[in-house]
């Protein structure tokens, strides 16, 4: 479904992505791991066209979405993204945050959206938080609203950029539960994460990024139990 071929990206003279090739099948969950600065976030931002890539190509269902000059808006509607710092719109209630894009992009009215949106909030345990503003919500609740906001656009694939890294430890669980739920519903997902236990439990594929390259990839059993590369071993020894 998603196919990256030899993607490179530099900021100034700094090569952040150095020939990344990766495929994600429909319904798969892929976890990107690696030290900070290894290129995980940049890779996700490139898939979502928030950053243009320098060379290589990104295919979404066979369409080259990395073509320079392509209108990014229709592509982004098919790809949901959730950020480390939630990035909710602080001047809107949780419900307005979720409704804004479907209203403007799909031209639907609030009334038409309300049943579906209410159902999403309920599904993720936020039914009583719809009329709250972001600063009235805990970090975990804000992040769950951000996930609901992305889901409301009915994306075909979801990108998660270290979405639990800014949370207090006791709030991480509720956000990971949402991911488990999405996983069980068959959503295609790519995560940049430091939650190794979670990745080991649920991922189909683990990619270890090192200095802008995929140093090693494979099923979690392989990567976590029997890594082939020294670098992978050293990284895992440091964080586990």
């Amino acid at each position: 479904m998603l196919d990256l071929r030899d993607v490179t990206k530099s900021f100034g003279g700094n090569r952040v992505l150095d020939g990344i090739s990766l495929t994600v099948e429909r319904g798969e969950m892929v976890c990107l791991i690696g030290a900070s600065g290894s290129g995980k976030s940049t890779l996700l931002r490139c898939i979502n066209l928030l950053e243009p890539i320098d060379d290589g190509a990104v295919f979404l269902d066979g369409q080259d979405i990395s073509e320079p000059g392509l209108n990014p808006d229709p592509v982004r509607r098919r790809i949901g993204m959730v950020f480390q710092s939630y990035n909710l719109f602080p001047h809107m209630t949780a419900e307005e945050n979720v409704m804004l894009a479907p209203r403007r992009v799909h031209g639907k009215s609030r009334e038409a959206l309300r049943p579906k949106v209410t159902e999403l909030f309920t599904r993720f345990g936020l039914a009583d938080r719809m009329q709250h503003f972001p600063d009235q919500l805990s970090g975990g609740q804000q992040q769950r609203v951000a996930i609901v906001r992305a889901l409301a656009m009915r994306p075909e694939i979801m990108l998660f950029d270290e979405i639990t890294s800014a949370l207090d430890p006791e709030l991480v669980g509720e956000v990971l539960d949402v991911l488990r739920q999405l996983r069980s519903e068959g959503m295609t997902m790519v995560l940049a994460t430091h939650e190794m236990k979670f990745a080991a439990e649920l991922a189909d594929k683990i990619c270890f990024l090192d200095a802008g390259r995929i140093a090693e990839q494979g099923p979690p059993s392989e990567i976590f139990k029997a890594p082939k590369k020294d670098r992978t071993r050293a990284f895992l020894a440091r964080i586990l």
């Binding site: 229709p74 982004r76 509607r77 990035n87 719109f89 656009m153």
Partner: peptide, 8 residues
């Protein structure tokens, strides 16, 4: 970035 990622 958040707004763009929603396709706005």
């Amino acid at each position: 970035a958040a707004a763009s990622s929603l396709g706005l």
